[in-house]
Design a protein around this nucleic acid. Structure first.
Lengths: 208, 208
DNA sequence: GACACGATCGAACGATCGTACTATTATCAC
DNA sequence: GTGATAATAGTACGATCGTTCGATCGTGTC
């Protein structure tokens, strides 16, 4: 890797970690330059605009997410086991040392939801990709016969995200030591509900 | 109300609405002054520091939250009905016109979770109060016999928050038109699980 | 060893930040 | 109405913001 690319990676890595603590809008060229012991203009030259830097930091986060969460989960067997692997790997991501403030996507999601622009657009795409992964892995679990056939997989993914968000809230803001345990309990309830015939299915079965 | 108090309320009201869109850290004295047609120094004199303004804006939000959500829900009968009322009122809060960017507590929660100080402290207290309301109303539903006796009410409140956070994410960031419907489905599943004997209880019952 | 070129620096730009002062204006009790 | 006091304006401060520009540095090539 060339000298410039190395520096660029170092900048983005530091920016990403910092953004988890002070937000993506809170990033400043001056602060980054000082932290990395280089000049504002030297750092700035790598990106041409702060907005580009923000997008590139998010892009690095997306790449790391795949390496930390998605890919490792693929070693688990298809179906429920892989759903569990994704859930477990996500905690490793959220608590990884390079992200001292937690998941950057979660932070960005509530920071940028009302600020149109390329940064928000990229974030939405990344979040949609992650949702699609969850939906697909749930679908596979249905096909494998682990989850019930009439499971609403999109709803499953939606509820799973709620569990993750509630964990971030409880853990990061409320500093609740039971946050992880609560997430696990909620997850087990979600999986259990995905096993059992749905209430709707049961009601129509009773009617027969 | 004196002139000063009126202006102060107007400032805080505008600041609160603006904060839902650009965040509490994104608030600036200059922007607020311009929006309200007054001088920076005149506006500033009401608070003495930006930090105080942020806390006071959050305080106003907390008061409005009680008026919009908590109090109206008290007219519903104790128990499950009141749980449902709180859930329904919360959507009215999240979508109320004075909060164009959604729930300010949710936005602040992920913005300030890593920034110690009085603003964060006040937010944590407010969020804890809201959690306690949810826990207590679930407990009442247990006492009324609407929810099963061994329900973990704190877990119930935790999961309910997850449903709300997932709604904000889906609605505000992803602009998913099904966000509200997904929240309702998740809520009904949560309530249904609170009705039925728990899996743990069932397992021990089977063992008898 | 000269050269080209990418990487970095230093200085400066206008804008805006939060905040401090002093002055001026508006309000309200008497 | 007058006088005390509250409310607002004006101006300025040092700091920092994102960005620009030209100079300088380092690296690798012929």
């Amino acid at each position: 890797m060339s000298k410039g690319a190395t520096t660029r990676q170092a900048i983005l890595s530091h920016a990403l970690g910092l953004a988890t603590k002070i937000g993506f809008e809170g990033l400043t060229i001056g602060r980054l330059a000082e932290d990395l012991g280089m000049s504002k203009s030297g750092l700035f030259a790598h990106f041409g605009s702060k907005e580009t830097l923000q997008v590139e930091a998010l892009r690095m986060a997306a790449e790391r997410f795949i390496d930390t969460v998605t890919k490792p989960a693929l070693v688990a067997p298809r179906g429920e086991r892989r759903v569990r692997a994704l859930f477990e790997r996500w905690f490793a991501w959220e608590q990884s040392p390079p992200l001292p403030g937690g998941c950057p996507f979660t932070a960005a999601a509530f920071e940028l939801d009302d600020r149109p622009g390329p940064v928000r657009d990229f974030l939405v795409q990344t979040e949609q990709d992650w949702t699609d992964v969850l939906i697909n892995v749930a679908r596979t679990a249905v096909h494998e016969g682990h989850f019930r056939a009439d499971l609403d997989c999109e709803q499953f993914a939606h509820n799973l995200r709620g569990i993750m968000l509630a964990y971030c809230h409880a853990s990061r803001l409320m500093k609740d030591p039971k946050a992880r345990a609560r997430a696990e309990i909620a997850f087990e309830a979600l999986v259990r509900a995905a096993h059992n015939p749905s209430a709707v299915a049961k009601a129509s079965a009773r009617r027969r």
